[in-house]
Design a protein around this nucleic acid. Structure first.
Length: 425
RNA sequence: GCGGGUGUAGCUCAGUUGGUUAGAGCGCCAGCUUGUGGUGCUGGAUGUCGCCGGUUCAAAUCCGGUCACUCGCCCCA
């Protein structure tokens, strides 16, 4: 590493990318509020156990992708070192917070969170080792209508971001715990008869995560999978009704979806609704927002049995797709010439800021240089303050777009600038 | 973790079968214009050719390794 560069899979976020990502988070907060969600900011690292238990030792995330470390107890003044992990996802931390704070007293809970998450994967476009997610969880409602609410919220967000026609909702139901277990058994039985033809990856998943084989991209696997028993076939009546209610709700609000029988979730605590909003515009990283129901998770973490459903969206991916984000109005440039003017400029700048106008002072170089810089910055106004102006109690307000310039009394500056700034952008 | 592609100035990229001092456009700086920007003209500076090693009289160019990005697998958001 001879050049100073960020660690693999991390990067500096600024400029357009920062604005686009900000726009995603802003939209998320706005939509979240309109669905009654409250902010829950959990720690960025947790005891390793919080992630290990729900995700399972054998999952890819736990077995090779987590950034785990042991705190050095002595230096920190702790009695014993702690096993800690940078969060690889949000749901586990939110559920832990729910349990830690006794929130079952106040159901249902609607939480929205956002921020960085960490996974040690091989980087790719739209896949980073430090990436950012928006996350929504609804705890304490086991009705299919809750699932509809969550998907509706996601759909509204995607539309607010202008992605309604770039994204397709893939929807499936895993059924309740019984249905799911029954199907898993059926599937394993079927696949075991085709072991010889399964890909290496799928062979490995036959024990750990057989449902995943359903969406294998290997050609031979796909042929085998095509003949596999259908998930819906082993679903009991209650599960079928649940799924029908979800679909009815989506129809009622006009959310288009594609029933994708091969859409699955690996972990056992997932049940019923699973969904992913997928785009074809980002290559292999096409999943832009995904979620599902996890009625068994909180209990598994040691909390009171509590149903839950949630989703997470990749901020980078959403930002890449939508690429929106308002350019901030460039600040007014204040150009004091000389000592007295520099002092007066502080005063003027503060009064402009009090009126909600962004101001930056450029105090270096000759006027030509400063105007040149101001022009490049995209500023609409330059306020020139030299000895002449100072003596007259005025400043020269130059409109950089129109090329006009007027002397304006100090106490009229706010009006002169904000009056015509509104029609600037 | 596996396989393919790429890496030359701040940015986008040329660079011949290995051959002198590595180029263009944009951007940047200066002057034309001493308190007035944009357009124009003139001039200027760009750089560890990703990094380390090897082959050779000679390497941006060939070879090996390595780092980073990128595409697919895997995994997922």
């Amino acid at each position: 590493m001879s050049k100073l560069q960020p660690a693999r899979g991390t990067r500096d976020i600024y400029g357009d990318e920062a604005r686009h990502m900000r726009a995603v988070v802003d939209a998320f907060q706005r939509v979240g509020l309109s669905y009654g969600f409250e902010e829950l900011a959990t720690p960025i690292f947790e005891f390793t156990e919080v992630y290990k238990r729900p995700l399972g030792e054998t999952s890819d995330i736990v077995s090779k992708e987590m950034y785990s470390f042991e705190s050095s107890a002595r230096e920190a003044g702790d009695k014993e070192p702690e096993e800690l992990t940078l969060r690889p996802e949000f749901t586990a931390g939110v559920c832990r917070a729910f349990i830690s704070n006794g929130m079952q007293q106040n159901l249902p809970c609607r939480f929205m969170s956002w921020g960085p998450a960490f996974r040690r994967e091989r980087p790719q476009k739209g896949r980073y080792r430090q990436f950012h997610q928006i996350n929504a969880e609804l705890l304490g409602q086991d009705s299919p209508e809750a699932d509809v609410d969550m998907i509706a919220m996601a759909w509204r967000l995607l539309n607010d971001l202008g992605l309604g026609d770039k994204v397709i909702l893939h929807l499936n139901s895993l059924g309740d715990q019984d249905s799911r277990a029954a199907y898993r058994a059926d599937l394993v039985a079927y696949l075991s008869n085709h072991k010889a033809d399964l890909s290496e990856d799928s062979l490995r998943r036959l024990d750990s995560n057989p449902l995943r084989i359903l969406d294998s991209k290997d050609e031979k696997d796909r042929t085998i999978v095509a003949g596999a028993p259908a998930m819906s076939a082993s679903m009991n009546e209650a599960s079928k009704q649940f799924f029908a209610a979800v679909k009815a709700g989506l129809d009622a609000i006009g959310v288009p979806y594609h029933h994708d029988e091969r859409l699955v979730r690996g972990m056992d605590y997932y049940c019923h609704t699973a969904f992913e909003f997928i785009t074809t515009e980002l290559g292999a990283q096409g999943t832009v927002l995904a979620g599902g129901r996890y009625d068994g998770l909180i209990e598994q973490l040691g909390g009171p049995p509590t149903p839950g459903i949630g989703w997470a969206g990749g901020i980078e991916r959403l930002a890449m797709l939508s690429a929106t984000g308002s350019q901030p109005t460039p600040p007014v440039i204040l150009m004091p010439m000389g000592e007295q003017a520099t002092l007066k400029a502080f005063d003027i700048a503060e009064s402009l800021r009090s009126a909600g106008i962004s101001v930056v002072a450029d105090r270096s170089g000759n006027l030509k240089k400063r105007l040149n810089r101001a022009n490049k910055s995209g500023a609409k106004f330059a306020v020139i303050l030299g000895d002449n102006e100072l003596a007259a109690g005025q400043a020269a307000v130059k409109n950089l777009e129109a090329g006009t310039q007027n002397d304006v009394a100090f106490d009229a500056l706010v009006r002169a600038i904000s009056g015509s700034a509104g029609d600037a952008s």
